[in-house]
Nucleic acid binder design. Structure first.
Lengths: 249, 249
DNA sequence: TAGTGGTCTAGACCACATT
DNA sequence: ATGTGGTCTAGACCACTAC
């Protein structure tokens, strides 16, 4: 009897049983993590994958469609199946929730104000699940929408995942695409905790608002495809003309 | 040649072409709206539906699974397919984003402070897509987590969808379940716009905080299964111990 | 034991895009 | 003309639940 490359179908009662299409999903994800296919690459067609994995084409299809729903792949009729890239458009709709009141969503420009190498404080270590005193890179950015400064960001990155970041000549403003192309880290899952705070004198000075004005502040944790915590970010945004937009459906 | 009850397969080039499984999805949704099946009811099994719609069982399955992903149905192996109900648990995870810092999500108690019938202001009319001066019911609620007052809500409901609401002896604290059971309106889609504001003297008094403290304020628009705007809500929450939690994945 | 949804396969045909 | 994903069908078998 022929044996699957993936776990045999007969193991249905083992405690780690996964349906074949789930196994295909995980295996394809693993291959992407290991860079057999990189963002933008086209996968082999369904029949080729089916042959490689020793499953039927329908099972491959179910797996690829699930990965498409998870935005890990995208498929185009008549063309092929591709590993998703974090383009500007995607980043905007998927990960950037701040919108000017009564306007369409728009991706702001970013200016990196400072770049430092520090040792993780207790708080940073806890959030990024690092040991205290592990090395962390801190980026401070000022972001502008329609040329108006409106957002301040402090971004904490584990040095171990971003080895050469301190030596980069320049940091582009679409960070998640940068993580993907330069560090093989694809942001897959984000949690934001939104709070209201009062503008400090430093906020006020940099954004041209008044001390004590209400501001939105959110702390973000981002996980990569391989489920590692790769970014801890604190964003502060003036709240007079901007809001944080959420759709629950 | 046999003809489908649903649009014929042969109309593939008509401008309104929908694949069969999409048509099944929409038809089943319509039947739920028309109350052939109510929240909690079990649907016929896949083969019975397939026979009724003159499609194959696999096509019905694809449609029912899509509706399950959209949380309109839920399916249990060995039992059946059911129309979703807005239970407390569901409401909490799906629609209630406010969480006490460092705690698990928890559904707050609600006390209805006032109930009024008013004419829509320009702002309310715009948000609920009503004509100005259409009748609107306003509920004001105070919500408590762990017995601590923390949230104030003003809820605007078009009178035309909530006819007898002013006569209800009591308004329960799980509103979305109440809409579903008493007014056949299932909340399906929500948009929240989150802002930071300063506590007014009224906020401060009712929540036991200080005037000028930062607060989270979000305005919510809710659409029902049949895509009507049914609720406009303004929520204000003290931000010292609570945050608005979002997961983007 | 009967009935439900879940998995897996196989194959025909369609729609779209490129060459 | 060729190759891709999308739709639709048919049927076998498995797993879970209730009676």
């Amino acid at each position: 009897m022929k044996k699957n490359k993936l776990e045999s179908k007969l193991s249905a009662h083992s405690p780690t049983y996964q349906p074949l299409y789930k196994q295909v999903e995980e295996y394809v994800t693993q291959l992407i993590i290991e860079q057999r296919w990189k963002p933008g690459d086209m996968l082999p067609n369904e029949f080729q994958l089916a042959k490689e994995f020793n499953v039927s084409q329908g099972t491959v299809r179910k797996a690829l469609n699930a990965l498409t729903d998870a935005q890990i792949l995208n498929r185009k009729q008549g063309i092929g199946t591709f590993v998703s890239e974090h383009t500007d458009q995607q980043a905007l709709y998927r990960f950037f929730p701040l919108v000017a009141d009564n306007k369409k969503p728009q991706l702001p420009m970013s200016e990196t104000i400072s770049r430092q190498l520090i040792l993780a404080t207790k708080n940073i270590a806890k959030n990024l699940q690092l040991k205290e005193n592990e090395e962390v890179i801190v980026l401070s950015r000022l972001r502008k929408i329609d040329d108006e400064p409106c957002i301040l960001e402090d971004i904490y990155l584990p040095k171990k995942y971003f080895n050469k970041l301190m030596e980069e000549p320049e940091i582009p403003h679409t960070l998640y695409h940068f993580y993907q192309t330069h560090y093989h880290l694809t942001v897959q899952d984000i949690t934001d905790q939104v709070k209201a705070v009062l503008a400090t004198s430093s906020d006020a000075q940099r954004l041209g608002i008044n001390v004590g004005d209400p501001m939105l502040s959110f702390t973000r944790l981002a996980r990569s495809l391989n489920d590692k915590l790769i970014e801890y970010r604190i964003t502060r945004c003036r709240s007079d003309k901007y809001h944080y937009l959420v759709n629950l459906s």
